[in-house]
């Protein structure tokens, strides 16, 4: 489900979440993939959500769980937030919890300079 952005380096690790929807159906797999990456050392992560049009409550839970797993060891930057997802982030105030950037370049730059 996660695709490494071609030409991107290891730190920050830059991934695209290649699924039109993040829901109860695929959240466990996404969560596991991310958990493995983080355990393997990817603690500064850029996640591009451009392909994702819809996130349900379970999907949101998995994103927050990833943020918690990274914790103070690293950083998570999100970009490519679609309008429907943005609406959900706003309703749940996650727009203030996640570091959200308008595009991949801005997100990577923010983590690189950190």
């Amino acid at each position: 489900m996660l695709t490494k952005i071609p030409g991107s380096g290891e730190d920050p690790a830059i991934f695209s979440l290649d699924a039109p929807r993040l829901t109860a159906a695929n959240s466990p797999a996404f969560r596991q993939e991310m958990a493995d990456l983080i355990s393997a050392g990817a603690t500064r992560v850029v996640l591009d959500l451009s392909p994702v049009a819809f996130i349900d409550s379970t999907g949101l839970g998995s994103l927050v769980a990833i943020l918690k797993q990274i914790g103070s060891r690293g950083d998570l930057a999100i970009c490519g937030v679609q309008p429907g997802v943005q609406q959900m982030f706003k309703l749940t105030r996650m727009d203030r919890v996640f570091r959200i950037y308008p595009n991949l370049a801005a997100a990577s730059a923010a983590l690189e300079s950190a």
Binding site: G61, V64, K68, K90, L91, T92, R93, V97
Partner: peptide, 10 residues
């Protein structure tokens, strides 16, 4: 309302 954090999340 303008939204708010869910309960038991963070």
């Amino acid at each position: 309302g303008e939204g708010g954090m869910p309960v038991g999340m963070l």
